[in-house]
């Protein structure tokens, strides 16, 4: 008699199943990650509204022209990553790679713009809560942009593995989801830091 309970076999590889878990797990993680930003944003708002002198001596406020250009770059990269996914869905691997690379370039440009902005500022991380929150928020967000570009590089390399993207690929979906997330966070950040100014 053979039974359903005969010898335990080696753990099964549930390949296809696993892929779906990956996306679910990643979405759950993103929801959780957004709470860190929520914490930073609310801390920033609280410190800003209760501060007697928000701006450190000698600082006039934040220049917003370059960050605006940066914002436009980042927001449009959300569009290009969408186009990349569309191209992949249509089966055009080179179209996918093209738009994907363009998205990476836009992300890299954003980081470059951020670096330029940082180097030109006349206040530092320890210049009161103004300086502290500014670098904390932009730095933490920048870290996410860098992570996004890293993930995209990984996915781009994977696209050259023959057959890798046949039958759907959760990594691309997850990366693009992450990228939209980073983008939305930036919009909130831009409004909170550059649009809402006080002296």
């Amino acid at each position: 008699m053979t039974t359903a309970y005969s010898a335990p076999s080696a753990p099964q590889e549930h390949g296809g199943e696993h892929d779906k878990h990956n996306l679910t797990g990643f979405i759950i993680f993103l929801c959780s990650e957004s709470v860190i930003f929520l914490a930073f944003f609310s801390g920033y708002a609280l410190l800003k509204t209760s501060a007697l002198d928000w701006l450190p001596a000698g600082v006039e406020g934040l220049e917003w022209h370059m960050p605006l250009i940066n914002s436009i770059v980042l927001v449009s990269s959300s569009g290009t990553i969408y186009l990349a996914e569309r191209a992949k869905a249509k089966g055009s691997l080179w179209g996918f790679r093209g738009f994907w690379l363009l998205t990476m370039a836009l992300g890299a440009y954003f980081l470059y713009g951020q670096a330029i902005e940082w180097s030109g500022l006349d206040f530092g991380f320890t210049s009161g809560t103004f300086g502290g929150t500014f670098y904390l928020l932009t730095g933490f967000h920048g870290l996410h942009v860098a992570t996004g570009v890293g993930l995209m590089t990984l996915m781009l390399i994977k696209s050259f593995i023959p057959g890798n993207y046949e039958g759907g690929e959760q990594g691309v979906q997850a990366t693009s989801l992450f990228w939209h997330f980073v983008d939305v966070i930036w919009i909130i950040l831009f409004l909170l830091i550059y649009v809402w100014q006080r002296s």
């Binding site: 860190i36 929520l38 928000w54 320890t126 809560t129 502290g132």
Partner: peptide
Amino acid sequence: PSLTGGAIMLLFDLVAGTTFYDPAGGGD
């Protein structure tokens, strides 16, 4: 994540000289 965020700021106050929680530098 809220504690993580708060602890990151505490660590910066402790080692980097920020004043998120230090009233002397406008913190709370």
